[in-house]
Computed example of a mutant assay.
Amino acid sequence: MAEPVTTLRDVSPSASVALPANAHRGALNIEYRWLNAHLADAPLAVFLHEGLGSVAMWKDWPQTLCDGLGMRGLVYSRPGYGRSTPRPHDVKLPVDFMSVQAREVLPALLDALDVNEAERKRMWLIGHSDGGSITLLYAAAFPDALAGAVAIAPHVFVEDISVASIAEAKTAYEQSDLRSKLARHHDDVDSAFYGWNDIWLSDAFRSWSIVDELDCIRCPLLAVQGYDDHYGSMAQIDTIAQRAAQTQLTKLENCGHSPHRDAPRVLNDAIVAFIGTHSRSARI
């Protein structure tokens, strides 16, 4: 019988960091966790969660992927989610809330955690769903300050299938045990849910699009989508490839909106191969 393998993991609990107020937002406390912090010289992978996600809701997938990549990792809960500052109930998210996260909140978090310019140029962003959209927006806003990006089931425009599924989620939240399940992961579960749900179901958001911003992305880009995704069609990642020619597409059979849960091994293999190829190219 083979000897058991022990993997060294960073098991420290989540911490929080305070981001100062600026002209566009108030002060924020952000929940975050480092992965593989002992790999001090390794590149950093930053994980951006879905519309109802948090540090805890990723479970162990970021750690597993970082182990496969031999990289450090940073997971954090965006404002309104997890243990980060909740959204005040009387404040609605703006239509450009994902742009604010990409251009203001994430850079401020990296500043607060002393992630310097050299580290950012070696950094990879890995985002899912709304986090995938934020990943694309960051890559477009900072085209020379990123090694590459992975967008998993991202949104670049609003589809009817997305709106219909988000409307169904509202019914489930109000009539099933979905609220109690989400409450385990968010300090203010109603703030988290309705912040996401209300903006996506608003009339103003129906015309939201980040397609034009995709033209500004210059870094290596992997876009992933499942064929059984009920929150978006293949038109999302096909559009990314049309606007950013360097994009590599991975389309997954028997996979829904969350490839890291539905097909983690296939997803990890695709990401490790993609990042490995571009890391070797950067050294040549």
Rank of each mutant, 00 (worst) to 15 (best):
A2F: 12
A2T: 13
V5I: 14
V5W: 10
R9Y: 10
R9N: 10
A18K: 11
P20H: 07
H24V: 13
R25W: 01
N29A: 15
I30D: 07
Y32A: 09
N36L: 05
A37F: 07
A37L: 11
H38D: 15
L39K: 15
A40R: 07
P43W: 10
G51Q: 06
G53K: 00
G53V: 00
A56E: 13
M57R: 15
W61M: 02
P62E: 10
Q63R: 13
Q63V: 11
G70T: 13
S77K: 06
R78Y: 06
R78E: 05
R78H: 07
P79F: 00
R83W: 08
P86W: 00
R87M: 00
P88G: 09
V91F: 00
V91E: 00
L93T: 03
F97Q: 01
F97Y: 13
M98F: 04
M98S: 02
A102R: 02
A102I: 01
R103G: 07
V105H: 01
L106T: 14
A108V: 01
A108Y: 00
L109R: 09
L109N: 08
L109P: 06
A112M: 10
D114H: 13
E117Q: 14
R120N: 02
R120C: 08
W124Q: 09
W124M: 04
I126Q: 06
H128P: 01
S129D: 06
S129Y: 04
G132L: 00
S133P: 03
I134C: 03
L137V: 05
Y138R: 11
F142P: 02
P143T: 14
D144S: 13
L146S: 08
A149T: 03
A149Q: 04
V156N: 06
F157P: 11
I161G: 05
I161P: 01
S162K: 02
V163E: 11
V163D: 10
V163F: 06
A164R: 15
A167T: 12
K170R: 15
T171W: 07
A172E: 11
Y173E: 07
E174C: 09
Q175E: 14
Q175Y: 03
S176P: 02
R179S: 00
L182V: 03
R184C: 07
R184D: 08
D188N: 14
D188F: 05
Y194T: 05
D203L: 02
F205A: 08
D212W: 07
C216K: 14
I217P: 12
I217N: 01
R218K: 13
P220I: 10
L222M: 03
A223P: 00
A223G: 03
V224P: 09
V224H: 04
Q225A: 12
Q225M: 12
S233P: 13
M234A: 10
M234F: 03
A235D: 14
Q236V: 08
A241K: 12
A245W: 04
Q246C: 07
Q248I: 09
K251P: 04
K251N: 02
E253L: 09
N254A: 11
R261F: 13
D269V: 09
A270L: 10
A270H: 15
V272S: 02
A273W: 06
T277A: 13
H278M: 12
R280Q: 15
I284K: 14
I284F: 06
